[in-house]
């Protein structure tokens, strides 16, 4: 496995596109195969994935108060 990557900056951009689902399946497979033999890119990939996952898990989601829905509907009914 390669210990350094001469294209690290470009690879980082590419793997973010992959994690965002913005490249074709073929490109994705090709890149994932490549990073299996490149340690820095393999680490980057896993780190980016962990950050993405941590955001989804950590950032709380709130439920909208029912009163707000009722207020919006009532204002619309007044306007109709």
């Amino acid at each position: 496995m390669k210990e350094s990557c001469e294209h690290a900056a470009e690879c980082l951009k590419k793997l973010r596109l992959i994690l965002d689902g913005e490249v074709s399946e073929d490109e994705q497979q090709e890149f994932l195969k490549k990073i299996e033999s490149c340690l820095p890119c393999f680490r980057f990939y896993n780190l980016e994935l962990a950050i993405k996952d941590s955001l989804v898990k950590a950032v709380p989601s709130k439920k909208v108060p029912q009163q707000l829905i009722d207020d919006i509907k009532s204002k619309i009914n007044e306007a109709v």
Binding site: P40, R43, A50, V59, P60
Partner: peptide
């Protein structure tokens, strides 16, 4: 080109939700 390389996956996974938020 300045890329943070020394953040570990395990560190991110162990972070509290508040820190990520």
């Amino acid at each position: 080109e300045s890329i943070t390389t020394d953040l570990r996956v395990e560190t991110v996974q162990h972070m509290m939700g508040d820190e990520v938020t």
